[in-house]
Amino acid sequence: MPGERLDAEWVRSWWEQADAMLTRLMQSFLPTHGFPPGDNTGLLATEDTHAATSALVDLTPIPSDLTTLYWVISEASLPDVDSGYFIHSPAMAAGHFRDYGPAPIDGEFIALVFASDGGGHLFAIGDSGQVWKSTTPSWFDDFEVAAPSLQEFLDQLARRIASQP
């Protein structure tokens, strides 16, 4: 879906569907895994999120799709999906950018880390719109393409939630 911009209504619909799948997953988690699930949640954006997103935009140019995501969803913590997935808040993304700078990805003018997994791998979105995943749990090693767009990244995440035993 490169070239198409992420739509806020699509993000809202995606989160509603993902949240419903998470609810089903959490209901079957204890009997399936033998221990209770962690806190698997997503927070919808608030005025504070919008202010943090604006501050992030002032700090560095960020892809419009990430702005759209943050205008709808503040953050998500999904520790029980695979090894865990975490969409960082805009304030956290800004803090990481100040501390570490952009992800070092050849061919991208700027790549902003916005998520991670439970193994410490990082996800960055570049100005191309592609989502990249670090090959190791490091800010400074190689990154490989994880999805051609943020929408596809979110679709992949939904499929992981749906396929979770």
Rank of each mutant, 00 (worst) to 15 (best):
T49D: 12
L25K: 03
L44D: 01
E47H: 12
E16Y: 00
E47F: 12
H33A: 12
G42L: 11
L43V: 04
L59C: 04
T53P: 06
A51Q: 13
R24I: 06
Q27W: 00
E16I: 00
G38C: 14
M26F: 13
H50L: 11
P37V: 00
A55S: 09
N40F: 07
H33V: 07
P37M: 02
T53S: 03
T60K: 06
D19T: 11
A20D: 07
A52Q: 12
A18E: 03
L25P: 00
A20Q: 09
L22I: 11
T23C: 02
T46D: 06
T60C: 13
G34T: 02
H33R: 10
G38D: 10
A52N: 10
T32E: 15
T46R: 09
P37A: 09
T46M: 01
P31F: 00
H50G: 14
H50I: 14
F35W: 12
P36Q: 07
H50Y: 09
A45F: 00
T49C: 06
A52S: 09
G38V: 09
L25C: 06
P37C: 00
F29Q: 05
T49Y: 01
M26W: 06
L22F: 08
M21D: 11
L44N: 07
L59T: 07
T49W: 08
G42S: 04
L43F: 10
D58L: 04
L44V: 08
T46S: 13
F29E: 08
A55R: 14
G38A: 13
M21G: 05
N40W: 08
P31V: 00
A45S: 13
P31C: 02
L30Y: 15
T23N: 04
A51R: 15
L56C: 06
T41G: 13
Q27P: 02
G38R: 12
A45E: 01
T60W: 08
E16N: 04
F35I: 03
R24G: 06
F35N: 09
L44P: 12
T49K: 06
L43D: 10
A20P: 05
Q17A: 11
T49R: 04
A18T: 09
V57S: 12
F35T: 12
D19A: 12
F29Y: 14
E16K: 02
L25R: 08
L30D: 13
F29I: 07
D39A: 10
D58R: 07
A18P: 05
Q27L: 07
T49M: 04
G42M: 13
A51L: 12
T60S: 15
F29S: 08
P37T: 05
A18C: 02
T46I: 01
D58N: 01
G34R: 05
L44R: 13
M21L: 14
A51G: 10
T53C: 08
L22E: 15
F35A: 03
A55F: 00
A51D: 14
P37R: 04
T60L: 13
D19H: 11
H33Q: 11
H33I: 03
Q17R: 15
A55M: 08
G42K: 05
Q27N: 08
H50E: 15
A20V: 10
T49I: 10
D39F: 04
H50P: 05
M21H: 10
H50W: 15
E47C: 11
T46K: 06
T23F: 03
A51K: 12
Q27M: 07
D48A: 14
L56E: 02
H50V: 15
V57Y: 03
A18Q: 03
R24E: 07
